[in-house]
C-alpha cells in the first residue's frame, strides 16, 4: 500500500512537471496543459504549442535538426528564414524560423527543438510558435522569455 502511494504521488508529480515548467508568455492564456504538452494562445490568435515526443528511433539533436530542416524545406515547401543554436531552459537546442503560406495566409513559424535524456530513449521536446508576420513580431520576445531561450 505504501509503495502504491509513493508511486501515485510520483506519477502526479511527474505528470505535473511539464505543465508547470513553462508559464504562459505575456499576453497569452493557457488553453491546455498535460504531461504531453501545453497550448497557449494570444488574443490575436498567435499560438504557442509545447510538446514532448518519444521518437521511433534514437537520434541526437544534430540528427533531428538536419531531418527537420530537410523535411520542412523539401517536403513541405517552407522557406527557412533563420536557424541558430540556442539554449532552451539551459539545455542545448536549436531555433528555426520558417515561413509558409497556408490557406492563402502567410504564416511565420518558430520551432524550438531540444532533447531530454531518458534511460531507454531520449525524448524530443518541441515548442512551436505560429502567427502572421505581424502577430509573430508582436509576441516573439515574450515567447522567448517564457521558454527561457538564450
Amino acid at each position: 500500500m505504501q509503495r502504491f502511494t509513493i508511486t501515485a504521488v510520483l506519477a502526479v508529480v511527474v505528470s505535473g512537471c511539464f505543465a508547470s515548467s513553462y508559464r504562459a508568455p505575456d499576453q497569452f492564456v493557457e488553453l491546455e496543459s498535460t504531461r504531453a504538452g501545453a497550448k497557449f494562445v494570444a488574443s490575436d490568435d498567435a499560438r504557442l504549442w509545447i510538446r514532448r515526443f518519444t521518437p521511433e528511433a534514437d537520434g541526437t539533436l544534430a540528427f533531428w535538426r538536419e531531418h527537420v530542416r530537410l523535411h520542412f524545406t523539401t517536403e513541405r515547401g517552407y522557406t527557412l528564414i533563420s536557424e541558430r543554436d540556442v539554449k532552451i531552459d539551459g539545455a542545448p537546442g536549436v531555433e528555426f524560423t520558417f515561413e509558409a503560406t497556408v490557406d492563402g495566409v502567410l504564416q511565420r513559424y518558430a520551432l524550438f527543438l531540444t532533447t531530454e535524456s531518458r534511460l531507454v530513449r531520449d525524448r524530443v521536446v518541441t515548442a512551436e510558435f505560429v502567427g502572421t508576420p505581424e502577430t509573430f513580431a508582436a509576441h516573439e520576445a515574450a515567447v522567448r522569455t517564457a521558454l527561457r531561450v538564450e
Binding site: V68, E75, R76, V102, V130
Partner: peptide, 22 residues
Amino acid sequence: PVRRATGSRFEWVNAIGIEPAL
C-alpha cells in the same frame, strides 16, 4: 504550395508544423 505532411519516417516530425498548429 504546402504539401501534405506525410513525408517523414518519423511520426513526431509529421505531427509538428504550421498546419497542425493551425
